[in-house]
Nucleic acid binder design. Sequence first.
DNA 1: ACAAATTTTTAGATTTGACTAAAATTTTTT
DNA 2: AAAAAATTTTAGTCAAATCTAAAAATTTGT
Lengths: 218, 218
Amino acid sequence: MTLSEEDYIKIIYHLGKGEQGTVSTNAIAEKMETKPSSVSDMIKKLSEKGLVNYKKYQGVTLSEYGLKVALSIVRKHRLWEVFLVEKLEFSWDEVHEVAEQLEHIKSEKLIDMLDKHLGFPQIDPHGDPIPSKSGEFKKSIKRLLNEVPIGKEGICIGVKDSSPPFLKFLDKNKIALGDSIFVVDKEEFDGSLHIKIRDIDIRISDQIASNLYLRIIE
Amino acid sequence: MTLSEEDYIKIIYHLGKGEQGTVSTNAIAEKMETKPSSVSDMIKKLSEKGLVNYKKYQGVTLSEYGLKVALSIVRKHRLWEVFLVEKLEFSWDEVHEVAEQLEHIKSEKLIDMLDKHLGFPQIDPHGDPIPSKSGEFKKSIKRLLNEVPIGKEGICIGVKDSSPPFLKFLDKNKIALGDSIFVVDKEEFDGSLHIKIRDIDIRISDQIASNLYLRIIE
DNA sequence: ACAAATTTTTAGATTTGACTAAAATTTTTT
DNA sequence: AAAAAATTTTAGTCAAATCTAAAAATTTGT
């Protein structure tokens, strides 16, 4: 597969919202920053290779094979994002562009060992789930931290209250977007939480927890 | 720079043995696994871009700028090789092909942070020196381990004695090609060595040390 | 030194992925 | 249900990087 073909497959996957949706030529052209006529050409090629189902003027869907390819690219992209954030100190908003390049590296062993090196993560720094080698992955949902069940882990993806005092609190406690938070325990009495973040245990009030959005799995 | 241009520059660098040597069209064609006529075309293009000095029928040399580009590619390649061996458990002979792809990823921050993550290594798993960000690097030389000065470190690049008992000894002591060995101390009395390998201290006899080749820096 | 062999370059064709302009099809509006 | 609008495809070019075949320059051998 060429680099360009991989980009098309990935974009068709995302526009099709994971699977079934049929995708229009124009939509692809916009995402690829190219012209619809170029897209037509490429679709024809992908169709001949069995990666997409295509009937003229009717839009495309990924074939079973195409979906498999798409998931393997998404897997690579998200694993590299985890690597950049966890190992190379990138922040969650700097990783996309580089992961976009890294996702095209071809080596099965590389990805297997990277996965292992990272401890088989299930979520990337934006909270999106990482497909397994065989292409399965859990659905992720958005939850306020105080609604996350004990024993679950999620990625911090946003705040409800964006007032300066709250943001300052987060900063002081080194809680940032993209951080992974594990809910260790919850105090019945006042709803305060015992969480683990970057391997450090801290305690936070219900008031804080009810203003932080996490993305969790399952 | 396109991927192909980068490959040409790197090959001209290696064929020119680091700098001055003028390189023939045929030699480049062979390394690139392409035809001399294709090389002529590309050389013309690289020349127009100021990357090489070129006079028809007279071979090419890298320009100052081209050398800088070459060194940055070599730097990336060797840093990735260290990463693959040290962090992802690749063996020294599996890294080349993957590093060949990774060296083309474009992100200054990525390389800076990778360098930091790896502890600013000076040698890659084959014992070759890693150019600094500004393009400087130390010359490396091949030495028998028993001739390496105390306090120096080198990469294991080969054996003098390849008899089964010796190789079995190396295997038992987890000494493999590509491993980094640091000479902690040397016993005057019998010439035995105290070395550090993979963060473990071990003691080896002069007999062993005089059959292992290291590549060291300076 | 000059003919033969080798190396290098030029000329013209090919492939990939993109482009423009125009034609074909589908969708929307009236 | 036609006309208008939007979308999609086709046809014909283009640029990058390659190729083959043939011409030009250099090097080698005697």
